[in-house]
Design a protein around this nucleic acid. Structure first.
Length: 913
RNA sequence: GCCGGGGUGGCGGAAUGGCAGACGCGGCGGACUCAAAAUCCGUUGGGCGCAAGCCCGUGGGGGUUCGACUCCCCCUCCCGGCACCA
């Protein structure tokens, strides 16, 4: 072999790692497991195996975690580093619809291609632990967890989930009542309804996002803000449907509070806090005039109740129908009626209009506050005033109680509405002098508020809540933006929900012993897509034959649940199954779980920031349920989260706006050309749709895997988004060749090391490098670690032979990032064991700190001279050296030093002022 | 509008209170070569200067400090998230 042959080296070592199962990690108690070592669980967010395969942008995080894993193995740590595939979901199914190929076939093909690509990058996953969410052995346990959700309820007093059997026992023994009613007074159906309504997985008639084009409902999180599906960009309509829900709202406070336990980027924490949207306030009952009913509102500003001059209900509010007056009452203003002859007409017309306005329309017209008077009034409990009740779509049914007390004096939206509808405005917080705004949101003394007058906002809130409670008008409450998780999908390619429906409406679980409930074979996996927004959802499983859909037990015919789970389900707990992937008795072995999850769960979880809310919130929720039920040992699943940056690239569009292949575009005369046509350059995330992806497969042949790994890490900080520039690779390739030549004679293949000790300067440089690289490894700063390799390597160029102490340490330092060339050099240096478990080099602190330093001498903060001094120089000596400098004397120009700042040994600053 | 993150040479980036621009790309000059590539050596923030050297310089303005890319205040622009959430 002459010179550095990356292809031969990379193939050789990947083959050897596979043959020798170098990176297999046994569990506690298994042969080869060393309990004396500390543990580290390093996890990538597992990918959805798309047909397009991986591009270099996907690999940044995977390479980063591989480096961390390799580094810690060398430090004597048991590293759990698994990989799997999140393979249920829409694309495989859509592809199947288009081609007639079963989703399982495409999924298996894609998984195989991903595994091939990941192996080719030299990633050190323990492939024995590989799993796919579509494996029956895996989704068996996804279904099992669903059953645990179904069989649990949330005990608010204990602030945790408990088995539903314990609730039933308490009800039967009389220690607990069903919403105030004694258990014996309820008939069987009422008891069942009550219990089913307490479960963490429950069926409810809810307003859902129905996407007829996809033939399925979508979670709020899967709908874009302009009311279209995240996937496919189809229109989404709101309509009520009976669906499975998961009671994530019960965990809102714990999901919020426990963010303190985890080491996550502030931005992700902030997004979760924002998504949960906790706000403290009060719910207050306003009695409807001339009726015994009352309407409950939620407000964060109960202190402003004396300024509530009208009430607004969401158009869909259930109380509206009962409120609408027969005719317009005396005093109704024209601005309130919407031009209708009666309240019923006005309300009907407004509701119809509101239902057809998309969320986007509502947002664009945010300043335009529409609404109509219902003709009804309610009584403000604080001051006894009768105030008109409106419906308006600026009040959302989905938040709080779907009704507000409108306080235009202290709320901008209410101010706008009041202005546009000629409603009275009463300030109840004194704005500062000179305040010229409209609604005043700031603090100040309460005015026109009876017994609250003079109090600041905080005190006034406390006093009014106390008053509301004392007089039976309301109480302090907390409201959340977070909603329960809509868990039904009407698609085929997902986990079947293991529930049976009895003829009497009762719900029964498929027994644990009968799991997995296999996804039945089906000829036509098409969703029942429709252009009609009113079409009934038809789950794909509804087309399976009766022999599957109907189950007869003891002569009773049960219907199977036909919905499947959303794609998020499988990714909620995969990190647990990696710990014990082949266990067919339990979800995860208790001892193995305790060992690998340790104190704070996964030690390093790396993935894209796009999962900041959905996946991470859902997974935390499931984990907390499993924690409450005693199946896992930590409160949080992911102790440390790290978001890798995106890889960006230039993309080019032709005159029609169509993307053209970026790698075929040429630059001439400052413009860009493709196929003889001028094209527009843009810049953005690398992706197949923009035709600017770089396929790693192409790279292996030309530059090598080690070059790819080094380049991806050298581009910049791991968490920053960075532009991909293929030509920059040459710097990395030069480094690799130079390093090879430093150690191997290109003509004779002789190893160019000497057993002579390294010279003083080189040895110091080596130890400085070990120190810096070690610190960079700990802090995930691989870009600067690589810069240190370059510096050390460049110094070695001048040597005939590299001292062995330097070569050995250098190759080991290189191993985490460029493992193939490191293995090869390690072997040639005479080592017989894989470098993967060679000890990480230690540095000598005295050698790493240099014995002489360049001392900077400033005059009035400006650098005037640099003098090499001993590192242990004293302050007096440093000052003397500084004053002795002719350059310093020239800069002083005879001026007297007023004071001297000395920071030995690096700096002296002579101040003349 | 609110929340979070950013702005440093031609480019990617380094430096988190103490030499701004490590390292790499690109550029320029040179060696080797018939030539080119590869490789090697030198150089490369801007301005003035023959030079020694001097001045300017981390989005803009102000402040703290002997000393600020770094800390504080105001402004501005860019990126990400949320957005009529009462």
């Amino acid at each position: 072999m002459a010179g550095y042959d990356h292809q031969a080296i990379e193939q050789k070592w990947q083959q050897r790692w596979a043959e020798q199962r170098t990176f297999r990690m046994p569990n506690p108690g298994e042969p080869g497991f060393d309990a004396a070592k500390p543990k580290l669980y390093v996890l990538d967010m597992f990918p959805y195996p798309s047909g397009e395969g991986l591009h270099v942008g996907h690999l940044v995080g995977d390479i980063g975690t591989d480096i961390v894993s390799r580094y810690h193995r060398m430090r004597g740590v048991n590293v759990l580093h698994p990989m799997g595939f999140d393979a249920f979901g829409l694309p495989a199914e859509q592809y199947a619809v288009e081609t007639g190929v079963h989703p399982r076939v495409t999924t298996e093909r894609n998984v195989a291609n991903y595994e091939r690509q990941l192996r080719a990058i030299g990633l050190t996953y323990d492939w024995d632990r590989m799993l796919s969410t579509t494996d029956p052995d895996y989704y068996r346990w996804t279904q099992w967890i669903f059953l645990r959700l179904f069989e649990s309820w949330f005990d608010t007093a204990a602030d945790k989930a408990r088995p539903i059997a314990e609730l039933i026992a308490e009800l039967e023994s009389g220690t607990r009542q069903a919403e105030g009613r004694p258990w014996p007074s309820l008939d069987a159906a009422a008891r069942r309804a009550f219990v089913d309504g307490q479960r963490l997985a429950y069926l409810a008639e809810v307003t859902v996002n129905w996407c007829p084009a996809l033939g399925t409902v979508l979670a709020n999180e899967e709908v874009t803000r302009d009311g279209r599906s995240e996937r496919g960009d189809h229109p989404v309509y709101r309509r009520p449907l009976r669906q499975w829900m998961l009671r994530i709202t019960a965990y809102a406070d714990r999901l919020l509070d426990d963010l303190e336990l985890v080491d996550w980027p502030e931005s992700v924490k902030a997004m979760q806090v924002n998504w949960i949207g906790r706000s403290e306030g009060a719910s207050i009952r306003f009695p409807a005039a001339g009726s015994s009913d009352a309407i409950e509102v939620f407000t964060t500003r109960p202190d402003t109740i004396f300024g509530a001059t009208y009430m607004v209900l969401a158009p869909e509010h259930p109380a509206v129908d009962g409120l609408v007056a027969a005719e317009w009452p005396a005093g109704t203003r024209p601005a309130w009626t919407g031009g209708a002859r009666t309240p019923a007409e006005a309300v009907g017309a407004y509701r119809r209009a509101a239902a057809h306005r998309s969320d986007l329309d509502r947002q664009t017209d945010a300043k335009e506050k529409t609404g109509v008077f219902t003709g009804a009034f309610c009584r403000n409990p604080a001051n006894g005033a009768d105030i008109p009740i409106f419906i308006a779509d600026y009040v959302l049914m989905g938040y709080g109680t779907g009704a507000i007390m409108a306080v235009p004096g202290q709320d901008e939206r209410d101010w706008d509405f009041a202005q546009q509808h000629e409603l009275p405005i009463v300030r109840t917080v004194e704005p500062p002098p000179g305040f010229e705004g409209k609604a005043y949101l700031g603090d100040g003394p309460a005015i026109a508020s009876d017994f609250l007058d003079g109090l600041g906002i905080t005190d006034a809130k406390a006093v009014i809540i106390e008053w509301l409670v004392a007089n039976g008008h309301g109480r302090g409450t907390v409201s959340y933006k977070l909603r329960d998780w809509l868990f039904s999908r009407q698609r085929y390619w997902g986990e079947p929900i293991p529930i049976l429906h009895g003829p009497d409406g009762s719900l029964h679980t498929v027994s644990d012993a009968d799991l997995p409930l296999l996804l039945p074979e089906i000829d036509d996996y098409r969703p029942s897509a429709s252009a009609d927004e009113h079409a009934e959802p038809v789950p794909a499983l509804g087309r399976v034959g009766e022999e599957w859909r109907i189950v007869e037990i003891d002569g009773v015919r049960y219907r199977r649940e036909l919905n499947t789970m959303p794609q998020w389900a499988g990714s909620c707990w995969y990190y647990l199954r990696f710990i014990d992937p082949h266990n067919d008795a339990v979800l995860v072995d208790r001892e193995a779980e305790r060992y690998w999850m340790g104190e704070s769960g996964v030690d390093l979880y790396v993935g894209g920031v796009e999962h900041a809310v959905l996946h991470l919130l859902y997974a935390r929720f499931w984990h907390k349920v499993l924690f409450d039920l005693g199946f896992v040992s930590t409160a949080e699943p992911f102790g440390r989260l790290f978001n890798q940056g995106l890889v960006m690239a230039n993309a080019y569009r032709d005159g029609r706006g169509v993307y053209v292949p970026a790698d075929k575009v040429e630059q001439r005369d400052g413009r860009f050309w493709w196929d003889g046509e001028a094209v527009e350059q843009s810049y953005g995330r690398m992706g197949k749709s923009k035709k600017n992806s770089v396929n790693p497969d192409d790279f292996f042949v030309e530059y090598g895997v080690d070059a790819l790994r080094l380049y991806e890490m050298f581009m910049g900080p791991l968490d920053a988004s960075k532009p991909w520039t293929t030509r920059d690779i040459v710097g990395i390739v030069r480094f690799l060749h130079r390093m090879w030549r430093n150690l191997i004679d290109p003509d004779t293949d002789e190893v160019l090391v000497s057993d002579a000790p390294a010279g003083e300067a080189l040895r110091r440089h080596l130890h400085r490098t070990i120190k810096a690289v070690t610190e960079d490894m700990e802090a995930l700063r691989f870009n600067t670690a690589i810069a240190r390799y370059f510096e050390l390597n460049n110094e070695l160029v001048a040597l005939e032979r590299v001292p062995r102490e330097v070569a050995d340490a250098f190759v080991r330092m290189l191993a985490p990032i460029a493992p193939h060339v490191a293995e090869e050099l390690w072997e040639r240096l005479g080592h017989t064991e894989s470098i993967a478990y060679a000890p990480w080099p230690e540095f000598d602190a005295d050698l790493a700190a240099s014995d002489t330093v360049v001392m900077v001498i400033q005059v009035d903060g400006k650098v005037r001279d640099r003098i090499e001094v001993s590192a242990d120089i004293g302050e007096a000596a440093a000052t003397a050296v500084a004053m002795g400098s002719p350059k310093v004397q020239a800069a002083l120009g005879g001026a007297e030093p007023a004071r001297t700042v000395v920071r030995v040994p690096t700096l002296v600053n002579i101040v003349t002022r």
